[in-house]
Amino acid sequence: MKISHQHQFVLLDYKHIDTEVEHGNILVSYKGSMNHDTLGEISRAIRQHTNKISLKVSRKLFAIFIEIAQNIAYYSCERNYLGTEYYDAGIGTVIIKEYDKFYKIIAGNVVTKDDADKIKHKFAQIADLNREELRDYKRTLRGQGEELNKGNIGLLQIILTSHNPLHIELIPLDEQYAFYCLSTNVDKSYTHTDD
């Protein structure tokens, strides 16, 4: 897919996905190809920074980051081809910000309008489920092996891991594409005494 300059601007202008852009300390801010090497580098940065606070927090941030990064890598419509399949990965944005009481994880990438509709539908199915219902639904999907590669379980897992609501937004870009944003928080209330 060819992304217009207008679309690239949307990717960079993360005010669309972060209304509190002026607050919080930025731990990670990345926009680009989410290949395996990039994923490894960002993972290390997350762990090095957050291990000091709490292993639980660190593991949650790492787990959520992996899900959203691999989702971008596999399904973003905007892709980099740098000559080898190894570097063929989706392009997207990941921001992790630190506040007094929590970390906020924000991710965004371009999707087709069809995928945007599917995401909306999936999200509507799970938005009001409580934890046990989410787990039950996850067991069902995983047990069936259903649509694993479509990110269904990933969304459930992000909610279960964060213990916080998931927010999604689908911003139309044109007749074919939309910008898919998701965000959630990880509380810092887990300290080393919990570890």
Binding site: R59, F62, I66, E67, R142, G143, L148, I153, G154, Q157
Partner: peptide, 11 residues
């Protein structure tokens, strides 16, 4: 740790 893709294979 395992991601959701791996979890299907572990199952």
């Amino acid at each position: 740790y395992f991601n959701t893709s791996s979890s299907k294979f572990v199952l």
